[in-house]
Design a protein around this nucleic acid. Structure first.
Lengths: 371, 371
DNA sequence: AACTTTTTAACAAACGTTTGCATAAAAATT
DNA sequence: AATTTTTATGCAAACGTTTGTTAAAAAGTT
């Protein structure tokens, strides 16, 4: 049975509104209040309403008050899609991250959202799951004028950047953070991984350590390569020897991988007295392994991590580490993107590279005595 | 000086395209390919193009191929805003969380995004920063037909739900997770906090512990109240005594608060032999404090946490805890919301409450011998 | 061959705003 | 009082799709 029923209901104001219940009475068309309703109610044109709501200077304060009053009274909520459609501005930015539930990324996203919100933008997030295929899919979805600009942290798998180049060709503002493309120049926000690693390593040397080990990240990824380079550079600069046997690569820098690497390093013929780890999970793993072996930290072996994860101050001894300023990186990335979206003058600028200051946070795993 | 210049450029296909540089030559109107261009190119109507691209059954396979071919060739990307505008479907869902950079929430969001993506939706996130004012602001922004449904984890401050009731009145599908409103019935996805706490506490009792302490969360928040109730219920059911002095409230359940509470509890006149903590940060704090005091875990004092954070398997001894299934909670929340968005039949259902199974993960902080 | 049915595509009207231009009224200037 | 200037509002087109209805052509049926 299929029927159509017309029901007439009185509405706020004088006009009457038609609600249509149709087809098994399933589709209740909840007719929303539009700018036209306000116009009718006040005997003004839609253009005046629109301008009044937007606080346009050409509209008298009196009318503005009137319009806002009625809008409130009728519970008017603007249709942002119609507005975006007409004005060609969505006030949306897209963010592609490998995974949201990784501490570093969630802090960066937090910074992006905080800055975007302040600037009147909102943030739509996508997880590439570190997959190249998925990343391309997402870029395709974002091609549709849905967002005014895009922030990306590259998927681990991504070695080809054509999908992003296409994006740039169609003039979509684009900013990369942390894991950025190596083979083409574009907007980037990074920390100085080389410098940070150099700093961390030199700190170990200053503590009198001479046989240094490194648990490195995936060496096809720029940032981890840089950290290894910084490690080596600091050793050589200080006239010490780089022991290649003490450099291990951990694909995902997970805690478990850290344990495995720690065992290998500690059982090596050259017994290290200092370990620099490419993140704090592996640093925590090294520390726990040393604890189990009753090796004194930092006296026998000192440990430095990277990123200042929450665990850095929970594991005992607390981990000396690099403050990677994730939240600030998010803010800086958001700021740069929105600048590119809004400022036409910036068209002259081809691209910008921002490098954030990092700092070494010294804790008990290298410096003070363990209590 | 103000000038207008017309530049004619050849375009893919046979047609030519006009680019207009205007007003100090700042606004490059990058004219995109639209459905109309495709129509012109193929001598078809826009409706046919639209239907062909949408794989409408009324269009012949031959034309579909033709259309898709030209679309590819000209690099056509649909304008999703125009489409949303006309079809009244944005394929977007909004998520309001207290903070993104909290482990639990980032895992829930990850689950939401994963499910939404599979279902062809995208996710826009907002942080209420646990502020009631901010939460109301965000709800107002989301009123604008920008999203088809909303997922919320309440701000700590929120005690009044009028802003959400208004949302429901305008028929916006709404689902709460974890921190849900107590005073009105609506769609919710939760874990059984009472049951989980009961389970955790009973486990301590089974280990022969009789003087139990609890580090509780903010007692104006439902879930933490439930956890306390479960704790007490388990004790009473097992014929033991609830020591009110051993129950402390930590506003934010931070590591530092945990340390403070741990000291108070351990220095209390009734020396506890078991501690149930409302999250893993405070549990880690208790464990570290006990370690510093050289108190044997679990022999002298056993510890149970809540949520299974990464630190649970990093701190030594590893923490016995409740698996809160954050990712699955995200998936379930996303599924429920999208169901409500898409299924008209569901209109009959007023609201749904989903409770997820939890489990106790037994580790060394309660059971096995520490090595 | 005259019909009915099916297939395929076109027409045209929306969707709710924004915005350039025109205009009317009021105020200021001569 | 005639004019210019300023202020406040209206008109109407446009943004790029989707979709209900209609029409023509092709295929099938007698």
């Amino acid at each position: 049975m299929h029927c159509t029923v017309y029901v007439w209901l009185p509405r706020a104001g004088t006009a009457k509104q038609q609600f249509i219940f149709e087809g098994k009475m399933k589709h209740k068309k909840a007719t929303r209040i539009t700018i036209k309703d306000l116009a009718q109610e006040l005997n003004l044109s839609t253009s005046t309403i629109s301008r009044a709501l937007a606080n346009h200077p050409g509209i008298s304060d009196q009318t503005k008050e009137l319009v806002n009053g009625v809008a409130d009274r009728l519970g008017f909520a603007p249709n942002s899609i119609a507005s975006s459609f007409r004005s060609r501005k969505t006030k949306a930015i897209g963010v592609i991250v490998p995974r949201i539930d990784i501490d570093f990324h969630s802090r960066v996203i937090s910074g992006i959202e905080a800055f975007a919100y302040k600037s009147g933008y909102h943030v739509t997030i996508f997880q590439s799951q570190d997959s190249y295929k998925r990343e391309k899919e997402i870029v395709k979805i974002l091609q549709t004028k849905m967002v005014e600009g895009i922030i990306v942290c590259l998927a681990m798998e991504t070695k080809n950047y054509d999908h992003f180049k296409k994006l740039l060709k169609s003039k979509v503002p684009l900013v990369f953070y942390d894991r950025t493309p190596d083979s083409f120049e574009t907007n980037k926000v990074m920390i100085n991984d080389f410098e940070s690693a150099y700093l961390a390593t030199e700190h170990l040397i200053q503590q009198g350590k001479t046989r240094l080990a490194h648990i490195a990240g995936n060496q096809t990824t720029g940032i981890f390569k840089k950290r290894l380079e910084g490690f080596k550079a600091a050793i050589e600069k200080n006239g010490l020897v780089v022991y290649e046997d003490l450099i291990l690569e951990a694909q995902h820098l997970s805690y478990q991988e850290g344990v495995d690497c720690a065992c290998k390093i500690l059982d090596s013929s050259i017994r290290p007295d200092g370990v620099f780890c490419a993140n704090d999970y592996t640093a925590a793993a090294v520390i726990q392994t040393l604890n189990k072996r009753h090796t004194a930290i930092p006296e026998e072996v000192a440990v430095v991590g990277f990123s200042n994860y929450p665990i850095a101050t929970i594991v005992e001894p607390h981990i000396t580490t690099i403050n990677d300023r994730a939240f600030q990186m998010g803010e800086a990335t958001g700021r740069l993107l929105i600048q590119h979206i809004e400022e036409d003058e910036i068209d002259v600028i081809d691209y910008q590279v921002i490098t954030l200051k990092t700092e070494l946070i010294v804790r008990e795993s290298t410096a003070e005595k363990r209590h």
